[in-house]
């Protein structure tokens, strides 16, 4: 009885080893972890990309949203999954600030960038029936009533928080930052008048701007941006000093654990390059106000490092960082 049991076990173990050695990646469904909640910008990008990647990989990607902790919950989940390439992280820029904000003790350096899909541009929006018609209007009002106006945010290290910090360092305005579960719920609160202003990715605001429900006061960029036939002035028009932080914006990408086997990485990079360059996906990215990129590997790592150094030091300079970027070897830009 016992010996037959042992034999079965041994056979099982052997066959398991044999299976891993011979099977070509991927031989089963992959799982994709989305850093932000359903309906947010990261979510839509991930769900639009996945079918193209599935076509290239020949296997399904089962997507789940794991929002929370400004992305730390998803990075923690993926870093603790096996490094076999079957668990993909569909994320945004946030983990690059996890160290300085002490949300996690690691950022994207522990992950391999399968593809940086594209970068976005942020706009500062207010409800369309609000009294402010330019960023300067809002900032002046906020200065008159310090700590009265409310800014929608997505938690420390989120896009609204970073843009708010940059604005604060330039203008010294004071607003209350109310955290929501993502850009979507934040925009909902803005539409309901529960917050007064919110910096968001263009994608999350475009349809509402088009419908005339919100107005964009400024684009966080050096040049004006045209949305739905309206020209949105650059932030530097009212505050030229803001220029030192530009260009800056959120980005989206796909990562796996860095210690994933190289051949698996290669398969993933190939598949996601095909997916990210699919015309349908490129159209969707552009429609949502993003600049398609589709870079990976060394090039992507350089992009990530540069972004991290600029942003981490901004937060450090305005006193929003909880730990100095120095501590983690993040160089000054």
């Amino acid at each position: 009885m016992l010996s037959s049991c042992t034999r079965t076990l041994a056979a099982l173990a052997l066959s398991a080893v044999a299976a891993t050695a011979t099977a070509a990646f991927p031989d089963r469904e992959l799982s994709g972890v989305i850093m932000w909640g359903a309906g947010g910008a990261t979510d839509v990008v991930a769900r639009a990309l996945a079918p193209h990647a599935e076509a290239a990989l020949g296997k399904k990607i089962v997507l789940t949203n794991r929002p929370g902790g400004t992305g730390a919950i998803s990075t923690n989940f993926v870093i603790n999954a096996p490094a076999d390439g079957y668990t993909l992280l569909f994320g945004a820029e946030n983990p690059q600030l996890h160290q300085v904000l002490q949300l996690a003790d690691f950022g994207y350096e522990k992950f391999f960038p399968v593809s940086i899909l594209g970068r976005g541009v942020a706009v500062v929006v207010v409800k369309s029936d609000s009294p402010w018609n330019s960023l300067k209007d809002f900032v002046e009002d906020a200065k008159k009533r310090p700590g009265k106006l409310k800014m929608g945010s997505t938690g420390p290290g989120g896009l609204p928080h970073t843009v708010g910090s940059m604005l604060n360092s330039v203008t010294k305005f004071q607003v209350i930052s109310v955290p929501f579960d993502g850009e979507g719920p934040g925009m909902t609160a803005l539409l309901g008048g529960h917050v007064d202003m919110m910096p968001v990715g263009v994608g999350a605001a475009a349809e509402n701007i088009k419908a005339g429900r919100v107005k964009a006061l400024a684009v966080i960029d050096g040049e004006a941006l045209s949305i739905a036939g309206q020209s949105v002035p650059p932030v530097t028009r009212d505050y030229p000093e803001f220029g030192k932080y530009l260009p800056w914006g959120p980005f989206y990408g796909v990562w796996v654990r860095r210690d994933t086997p190289d051949d698996v990485k290669a398969v993933l990079v190939r598949a996601f390059r095909a997916a990210a360059e699919n015309p349908q996906f490129v159209t969707l990215m552009k429609d949502r106000g993003n600049v398609p990129m589709s870079t990976s590997g060394v090039e992507a790592d350089a992009f990530l490092k540069k972004w991290q150094s600029v942003t981490a030091w901004v937060l450090q300079d305005v006193g929003a960082a909880k730990a100095s970027p120095d501590k983690f070897g993040i160089p000054k830009p």
Binding site: L12, S15, A16, A19, R28, K60, V62
Partner: peptide, 12 residues
Amino acid sequence: FSVVLPGVLGAC
């Protein structure tokens, strides 16, 4: 439902 049950049918 592509729930990957632990230890697939395999040798059994």
